[in-house]
Design a protein around this nucleic acid. Structure first.
Lengths: 343, 343
DNA sequence: CGGTATCTTGTAAACGTTTTCAAAACAACA
DNA sequence: TGTTGTTTTGAAAACGTTTACAAGATACCG
C-alpha cells in the first residue's frame, strides 16, 4: 500500500504538506499543491482511513439499530437514514437485532469499540433497559436518537409519529363512513394500553375516538397476541373475529401487515371486500397499495421520519444542537378501496 | 476515555500484558489475568477499535453494495448477509447505490479508505464497468463476491440462481396446466436476451421451454421497458397485454412485483383470477404470499444466496479459499392460487 | 546445585495519519 | 539593507494498540 510517505518522497515535500493538500488546507503554494496531486495520482495513493480515523478519533460511522430488517417499514426507514447520512459524509453500520437482547448488546458494544459518533435506535419492547443503555451512551459522548418511539422522559432525542391522533383519525374515518361496531386488531401490549410503544398510543387514540365521536360505537378487540405485526397474526385474528362478531362491519388493524392478514382471512371466508367488511390499516407501507382491494390506511411519513432522525443525530454529533429534541410528525389518512360507506 | 495504559497502571502490569489478556492470549498467569480483568471492569475499559484496527490494518468491515434497499428482495438478501457476517465477527457497511454510478463510485472509494476486507456486490446494469472495478479491487487485496449476477468470465466469485432453468420450469408449469398462449412481462434488456443479467437468463429459459415442451406454444412479449421490476410497470404492461391479446390465458412475469402489478391490472379490468388468466411470478418474496389470490412463483432461495455469498467472501478474506468460486442455486416452483389448470 | 527448557512479563518499536511549533522563506516597507 | 509581518514549510510528537524481542522467573532434570 502506498502511504503518505511515498507521496511526500515523490513530490519532494514533507508528509505534513501532503496531509495539508489531501485535507484541503489553505497555505499551500499552488505549485506545490499541484506537484503533490500529481504524485498522488501517479502513485494511486488513497489515504488510510483507519489511520486518520484513529488519529482524529473520528470514525464518521453511525450505527443504526433496528429490530428487524426484512419488514417494509424498516427497509424504508433504513433507506432514508442511510442516504441522508451518506450525503452528509457519514457511513452507517446497519444492525438488525431481530429482537434478541444479546444481539443488541453485542452491537452496541461493537459500536462503542468502533467509536461510532452516533446511534439511531428503533427500540424494541425492552424499553427500560434500552433507555438505560442509551443514557449511558450519551454520557460517554455518543449522540443518540430514537426513531418510532418516544421515551417518557425527554432526555433523549426522538422522532415519532403522533400515533394517538393516528388512531383517533382512523376511527373518525370509519365512524364517518357509518360503521358502529368496529373490530380492532392490535398487539397484547398495546391493548393493555400502558406502554410507551407506538401500538399503545394508537389504541389509546382508538378508544378515545370511540368515546368522543358517537354515542353508539362499539369496539371489540381481537384476542391478545404477543408478536405485534405479522401477516400470520392478522390472518388468525381476522378469521376468529369475522366468525365470532356477526354484526361487525369494519376492522381497524394497527399495522398494514396485520390488515393484509385480515384481508386474507376475509377472502378465505368468502367475504367480498369492501362490501361485507371495511378494513383499515396503519403505516402506509408500499405493500398496502398493492393489495386487493387496495388498503385504506393511516400513513406514516416513514422516509421523513428517517430523514429527520438522521439530521437530528447529525446536529447532535456536530454539537450545533445540544438539548434533546422530540419531533412528532403527523400521519395522514389515505383513502383507498378497502373502506366504504355503509349503505 | 480510559485507555490500555490506565488499565496497566491500575493492575500494575505492562500494557503488553493487558493487551494479551484482552486478546485472550496464552501465557498469562491466572492471577495476573484476573487482576487485569478486575481493573478493566472497574475502570470500564473498552478497547479502542479504531486503534487496533489501525495497528493490525484489519477493519473487520465488509461492504455490501446493493442497487436498492427498499425492495423485498434486497431486504431479505441484506438481512441474510448481515446476520451471517455478524456471527463471524465482521461488521457490514450497507450501501444502496440506487442505480447511481457516482454513488457506487463514492461508496467503493469509502470502502477502500476504510480498508474494508471484502465487498459483496449486487451489480446493477453497468456490468462491464463494475467488473473492471471489481477486478481492480481484487488486485489491491480486497475480496469480492458478486451476488445475483454471474459474470461471464469466472475471475470473480459469484452466487446466483439458475435463472435459465427457473424460466424453463415456470413455462413447464404453465404448459402442463394446459396454457398455450402465454404472455411474458420482462425488461427490455432481458427481452433482447443478450445480457448476462438474471432477467436475460430467465427469458432464454422461457424461450427454450416454449420450443421444447409443446409444438403449439405461443409466447407474446409485453412492450419493452427499461426499469425492470416495479409494480407500476407490471400494471402498465398487464393492462395493455390483457386488452390486446384476447386468447392469452396466462402471464409469466419475471419478477413478483411485476406479477403483482399484472394482477392489479387484471383486477382493474374486471377479470376473475385465476379463472380468466393465470399469473406466475418470479422471486418468491414475502409479498407474493399475501396477494389475492396468492401468487404462484418461481422462488429463489434468497436468504441462502445471502448466506452463501457471505461465507464465500469470508473464505476469501481468511485466505482459506483463493480461487474464485461460482455457486449456482436452484429455484423452486411454489404452486399457489394464481395459476390454474385450463378446463 | 548447575544447567536447560519453558513460561511469563516488560520494553520499545512500529502502524499512517494529523497537528503543534518553530523555522524558513518571502513580501512589504522604511 | 534592515526590520517587521505574513505565508509556507518541515520536524517531531502524538494517538492506542499489537507484537518482536529479550530478559526474568520458574520448573525440571540429572
Amino acid at each position: 500500500m502506498v502511504t503518505i510517505k511515498d507521496v511526500a518522497k515523490a513530490a519532494n515535500v514533507s508528509i505534513a504538506t501532503v496531509s495539508r493538500v489531501v485535507n484541503d488546507y489553505a497555505h499551500v503554494r499552488p505549485a506545490v499543491r499541484e506537484a503533490v496531486n500529481k504524485a498522488i495520482a501517479e502513485l494511486g495513493y488513497r489515504p488510510n482511513g483507519l489511520a486518520s480515523s484513529f488519529r482524529t478519533q473520528q470514525s464518521n460511522i453511525v450505527g443504526v439499530l433496528l429490530r428487524q430488517q426484512r419488514t417494509p417499514f424498516s427497509s424504508a426507514l433504513a433507506y432514508a437514514i442511510e442516504t441522508t447520512m451518506f450525503d452528509e459524509g457519514y457511513r452507517v453500520l446497519l444492525c438488525s437485532t431481530n429482537g434478541d437482547p444479546d444481539r443488541e448488546e453485542a452491537y452496541l458494544d461493537t459500536m462503542m469499540e468502533m467509536r461510532a459518533q452516533g446511534i439511531i435506535i428503533r427500540p424494541s419492547g425492552a424499553t427500560a433497559r434500552t433507555i438505560r443503555r442509551a443514557n449511558a451512551l450519551r454520557e460517554s459522548g455518543v449522540a443518540v436518537t430514537f426513531v418510532d418511539m418516544k421515551p417518557r422522559l425527554a432526555s433523549i432525542s426522538a422522532v415519532v409519529c403522533d400515533n394517538y391522533s393516528g388512531g383517533y383519525e382512523g376511527m373518525r374515518h370509519l365512524i364517518e363512513l357509518g360503521h358502529r361496531k368496529i373490530g380492532v386488531v392490535a398487539g397484547a401490549v398495546a391493548q393493555r394500553g400502558g406502554g410507551t410503544d407506538v401500538g399503545s398510543d394508537r389504541v389509546r387514540g382508538i378508544r378515545q375516538a370511540a368515546q368522543d365521536l358517537a354515542t353508539d360505537v362499539e369496539i371489540v378487540f381481537s384476542p391478545a397476541f404477543t408478536e405485534t405485526s405479522s401477516f400470520e397474526v392478522g390472518l388468525e385474528c381476522g378469521r376468529t373475529m369475522i366468525t365470532t362478531e356477526k354484526d361487525m362491519t369494519a376492522i381497524f388493524a394497527t399495522t398494514d401487515m396485520l390488515a393484509i392478514g385480515v384481508m386474507h382471512a376475509a377472502h378465505g371466508l368468502g367475504l367480498d371486500l369492501p362490501r361485507d367488511v371495511s378494513i383499515l390499516g396503519y403505516d402506509g407501507v408500499l405493500e398496502s397499495s398493492v393489495t386487493f382491494p387496495t388498503l385504506s390506511t393511516i400513513a406514516q411519513p416513514i422516509e421523513e421520519m428517517g430523514r429527520i432522525a438522521a439530521t437530528t443525530l447529525i446536529e447532535h454529533m456536530r454539537g450545533t444542537v445540544r438539548t434533546p429534541r422530540q419531533v412528532v410528525l403527523e400521519n395522514a389518512l389515505i383513502r383507498r378501496d378497502s373502506t366504504r360507506m355503509l349503505p
